[in-house]
């Protein structure tokens, strides 16, 4: 049972209402809508990650699911399992995905990454994508902290609108 109330959808500030209209009226968004001074920047950040063409959806969803699992976020797992399956992210990883996941595993469990692990991911992805990978981990690692702290209920029906 969620430890905080969820803001009614029509009480959210206008840019955030528009964000929810596109991405879904999810409990997580109604939670963030309680903070009108910071929710629009957060929505803009989230939009950029979901819209970025840097990663194929299969790699992106694989990374998100892995972070969710390592951080024990039932909410992230519930919302991303559908998009992950649809993108083929539950099949065996290819070598590039393996290199990315090794970085994710080390970073989430030790807060550091060894040279060999970083170099492999960097070589497989290039500089722009390895930086975006680290930013993506940052987003879902942080979000898992918020969701776990609030003990947010998984949405009964609403699901994330992601490409």
């Amino acid at each position: 049972m969620s430890r905080l109330p969820l803001a009614p959808v029509d009480h959210a500030p206008e840019p955030f209402r528009e964000f929810m209209a596109r991405r879904g009226e999810l409990n997580v968004f109604r939670l963030i809508a309680n903070a009108p001074a910071v929710c629009d920047g957060w929505a803009r950040m989230t939009d950029q990650f979901l819209d970025s063409p840097t990663f194929p959806p299969r790699l992106r969803e694989r990374v998100i699911l892995r972070v969710a699992e390592l951080r024990g976020s039932a909410y992230e797992t519930a919302q991303h399992l559908g998009p992950a399956r649809q993108a083929g992210a539950t099949e065996d990883p290819d070598p590039t995905e393996r290199a990315a996941l090794d970085l994710v595993d080390e970073l989430c469990t030790t807060h550091e990454v060894r040279d060999a692990t970083f170099d492999k991911a960097h070589a497989a992805l290039g500089t722009e994508a390895v930086t975006e990978l680290v930013l993506l981990v940052n987003l879902y690692y942080g979000l898992a902290l918020i969701l776990n702290a609030v003990d947010l209920d998984v949405d009964e029906h609403a699901r994330l609108g992601a490409p």
């Binding site: 910071v38 957060w42 950029q48 970025s52 680290v134 930013l135």
Partner: peptide, 18 residues
């Protein structure tokens, strides 16, 4: 972080609001 052009400004905007 600006090496990740496609997501950098969103992250900066979020931090700025905080």
């Amino acid at each position: 972080l600006a090496n990740a052009d496609r997501v950098f400004t969103g992250w900066m905007a979020a931090g700025r609001e905080h």
